[in-house]
Amino acid sequence: MSAFSAIGEEREIDREEFTPGLEPQPTWCPGCGDFGVLKALKQALPEVGRTPDETMLVTGIGCSGKLNSYLDSYGFHTIHGRSLPVARAAKLANPGLEVIAAGGDGDGYGIGGNHFMHTARENHDMTYIVFNNEIFGLTKGQTSPTSPKGHKSKTQPHGSAKEPLRPLSLSLTSGASYVARTAAVNPNQAKEILIEAMNHDGFAHVDFLTQCPTWNKDARQYVPYIDVQDSDDYDFDPTDRREAAEMMHETEDALHEGKVLTGRFYVDEERPSYQQEKQNIGEMPEEPLAARYFDEDYEWERSYDMFLDKHK
C-alpha cells in the first residue's frame, strides 16, 4: 500500500465531500463575494478529479483565510501573507498533492508581495487564488493595495494618495505562467478558470474579484462583467506576452472606470514547472520526498560514509 493512497485515487467525487460537517455554514457577511470562490472551488475540484484527502489548501489571514474552515480538505491556515512559501514547500515535499493557496489582496499583494513575486518567478505547479475586494475587510474597511487612488477610509481620511497596484501585470512580469481574472458574480467562468488553473503545470494566478458588501459599499458589485475571450471588442493572444501585457494594463485601468474585464490574460503551456527545472538539474528527487519516510526498505545515507572523507 502506498503511504499516500489518497493521491491519484480514481473514483467518483461528489462536490459535497468538500463541505465540512463541522462548519458547513461560512461566517462571511450575506452577499460576500467569498461565497463565490468557495462554490467555484467545490465545483472545480471534483472536475479535476481531486479528493479532499489529496488536496492541500493553504490560506493567509483575513476573511479569505477562513476558506479552509469551510472547505473540507487538508488545510493550513497560516499567517498574514505567508501562504505561498508554506504551500510551495509542501508541493516540493510531496508533488502528488493538489496544492492551492488563497488569500486576500492585502495578504497577497501587500504583506506577502515578495512571496508572490518569487513564487510566480519560480513557477511552482500550484494555484493561487487572490480574493481581491480592493479593501481590508476583516479589520473593518481600511484602504488596501488595490484600493483605487483617492479611496477614503479611517486610515486614509483624505483619500489614498497612491495608485493601486496592478496585480495582473505584476504577476506576468514576475513570471506566472497562467494569469486570469474572474469575479464572484460570474460563477460559471470562475469554475472554468479554476479548473484550468489547477490543470495548468505551473504557477496559476487567479485574481478573483470578490465584492465586499459591508466595507466597500461604494465599489461596484463587479457587474456587468465582460469576458474578454467572449467579447468581440477585445482581440489579443493570451499566449503572446506583449499582447497579454497590454491587455492586462487596459483591464487594470478599466476596473477603476467601472468596466469589469475578466478572463484568461496569459497562458504559457511551454514553460517547465519549477519541479521539472529542479529535477532537470538534479536538485530534486524523482520520487516524492515525503514517501521516503514511509518506505521501510529505504537505506538512509550516513554522513560518516558520504562526507567525512574530505575532512580526513
Binding site: M56, F76, V86, A89, A93
Partner: peptide, 17 residues
C-alpha cells in the same frame, strides 16, 4: 520569513526540514 515558512510547509507535508 519565506525560509522558515518553507521549512514548516515541507515538514507539514512529511519531510524532515
Amino acid at each position: 520569513i519565506a525560509a522558515a515558512a518553507l521549512a514548516i510547509g515541507a515538514s507539514h507535508a512529511g519531510a524532515k526540514a
